[in-house]
């Protein structure tokens, strides 16, 4: 590992903060996508379809 010098705390904190927020953003976006897919699957399972007959998830 490289020696980050006397300001290592600032450098490490900035990379950790960015990693944390990007990870949360990815989780949030993926969770949103899964939630809507599940919602549409549940609707289709109840027999509620689009008029075109094409799956709403397509």
């Amino acid at each position: 590992m490289i020696d980050l010098g006397p300001h290592a705390l600032y450098i490490v904190s900035s990379y950790l903060g960015v990693t944390l927020v990007v990870a949360l953003l990815i989780i949030w976006v993926r969770h949103g996508a899964r939630k809507q897919h599940a919602r549409l699957s549940e609707l289709e399972a109840r027999g509620i379809h689009r008029r075109s007959g094409v799956s709403a998830s397509e």
Partner: peptide, 27 residues
């Protein structure tokens, strides 16, 4: 690239959300 990846997924999610809302409303 990260932004465009997340934006594509978020846009698709929003379209699915609107479709689900429309189906529920129609039902």
């Amino acid at each position: 690239l990260l932004f465009f990846t997340l934006h594509f997924i978020a846009m698709r999610t929003e379209i699915l959300r609107r479709r689900a809302n429309t189906l529920e409303r129609q039902h």
